[in-house]
Nucleic acid binder design. Structure first.
Length: 262
DNA sequence: GTTCTCACA
DNA sequence: TGTGAGCA
C-alpha cells in the first residue's frame, strides 16, 4: 500500500483548501514529497507534520512569507518571543471585542429606552460625567463636514459616541465623554430629559422652547446649561434620521427625590 | 481528480 | 492571503 496521499486527501485531513496547499508551495513553505508522472503532488507523513507546524505559525499571525525562515532557523528563544508577541495581539483583540460588546449593548439599551419613551419628558439620574471639549462654535452655525475636518481633532469612533452639545449664551460647544477628569464635568443629579427624532433646525429651537416651558409648567428649576445629546448610532433604526436627547439639570425638589432616588 | 492561470476581494 | 472560475 502506498504511503503517500494526494493533495485533496491532505487538504481534507488538515482542514485546509487544496488551493491553500498549492499557495504554500508557491511561497516555498511546503513542498510535496514528490510529483508523480501525472503531475499530481503526493505528500507523506513528513509533510503532514510540516503542515501542522505551518498552520500553527499562521494562527500565531506569522505571514506566510516569513514561515520558511521560522521553520529553518528559529531558536527556542525566538519562538518564545514570537509567542509573547502573539499573546499581546490576542489581548488587544480581546479588548477590542470587549469594547464592541459594550457598544452593542449600549445601542440596544438606548434604542429600547427611546422606543419606550419617545417624545416623553422624563427625570433621569446622571452620575457625575466628564468631558473633553471638541468643537466650539457660534450657536447659529450648522455643523458640516468641512468643520469636522478642519476644526476638529480626529476622534476615534466619533459616531459611536454620545456627542454633547452645550448651549451657553451665543455659543454651542461640542463635548465628548471621557473616563478621566476632562475640560468639563456635569454634576450628578436629576436631569429633565426628552428624546426626539431628526428635528430640523427651527424645529429644534421649538423643541428647546417647549422644553423650558414644560420645566416651568412643572415648576422644575433648571440649574445648569441645556445639553443636547446626539446619538447618531441610533440612526440605524430609523433610516438615517438623527436621534437627539435634550437634558438639563434640575434643582432637587421633593418630587424628583421621591421618584428617582429609591 | 488535478494542474495552471487569471481575476478579484 | 487567499478564493473562485474556466480550461486542459
Amino acid at each position: 500500500m502506498k504511503s503517500e496521499i494526494t493533495i485533496s486527501e491532505l487538504a481534507k485531513l488538515m482542514n485546509v483548501s487544496v488551493h491553500q496547499l498549492r499557495y504554500f508551495e508557491e511561497k516555498g513553505v511546503l513542498q510535496p514529497a514528490y510529483t508523480g508522472n501525472n503531475q499530481y503532488r503526493m505528500y507523506s507523513i513528513d509533510q503532514v507534520y510540516q503542515l501542522a507546524h505551518i498552520l500553527l505559525l499562521r494562527r500565531l499571525g506569522v505571514p506566510v512569507q516569513s514561515i520558511k525562515e521560522c521553520m529553518t532557523s528559529y531558536s527556542a528563544d525566538q519562538y518564545r518571543k514570537l509567542l509573547h508577541h502573539s499573546l499581546r495581539e490576542v489581548d488587544a483583540e480581546m479588548q477590542r471585542l470587549k469594547e464592541l460588546h459594550q457598544f452593542i449593548n449600549k445601542v440596544l439599551h438606548e434604542q429600547e429606552s427611546f422606543s419606550l419613551h419617545p417624545n416623553q419628558y422624563q427625570i433621569k439620574w446622571r452620575d457625575t460625567s466628564y468631558f473633553t471639549r471638541w468643537i466650539e462654535m457660534d450657536s447659529h452655525t450648522k455643523l458640516n463636514a468641512t468643520l469636522l475636518v478642519g476644526q476638529a481633532e480626529r476622534v476615534p469612533n466619533l459616531f459611536e459616541s454620545d456627542i454633547h452639545y452645550l448651549y451657553e449664551s451665543n455659543t454651542v460647544t461640542l463635548y465628548l465623554e471621557t473616563q478621566a477628569t476632562g475640560d468639563f464635568s456635569l454634576p450628578e443629579g436629576n436631569y429633565l430629559s426628552i428624546q426626539c427624532l431628526d428635528n430640523e433646525d427651527d424645529e429644534l429651537e421649538h423643541m428647546i422652547e417647549q422644553f423650558y416651558d414644560y420645566a416651568a409648567g412643572q415648576s422644575y428649576v433648571i440649574a445648569g446649561p441645556l445639553i443636547l445629546i446626539e446619538k447618531s448610532y441610533l440612526s440605524l433604526f430609523s433610516q438615517s434620521k438623527l436621534h437627539y436627547e435634550l437634558q438639563a439639570l434640575i434643582e432637587p425638589t421633593a418630587n424628583s427625590e421621591r421618584n428617582d432616588r429609591q
